[in-house]
Amino acid sequence: MSVDINKIAKQFMEALPHARALGMRLRHMGEGMAEIEMDYDERFVGDPETGVIHGGAVSALMDTCCGAAAMSHPSSPGGTATIDLRIDYMRPATPGQKIRAHAECYHITRSVAFVRARAMDDDDARPVATATGTFTVEGK
């Protein structure tokens, strides 16, 4: 498959105004996996005292990344919507560092895609947050 990943990535992100507003960049998408990163931005801070990014911005990143993973699964006809998403916040993301989410669609039926994800800052070994979610499986 020699589809230009940069072109797909660009189109995917540009189609999502909220993802664009948060400056998300798609690094990888295919075979039920996706990786998206988001730069640190002072406008996204949730705790003014510590400068830590708001959980809601991390949720948006996780949701986008999980949706991308579900859509990219070989058995998915293309469209998806979130049914439910749970996020566990393990530690505050280090202020100033970008956040990278990696999602995997580990099971898919005709109607439901099951996805899990991890979010990391520069410290790869200790995730900032993990997520598990279910997504609808829809035609484009």
Partner: peptide, 21 residues
């Protein structure tokens, strides 16, 4: 900028999650 699906259009799940949080 809160839109996730421009075809419907619908709010982004992440914007909804952030709003709730």
């Amino acid at each position: 900028k809160l839109i996730g699906n421009p075809l419907l259009p619908a709010l982004h799940g992440g914007a909804t999650a952030a709003f709730l949080e």
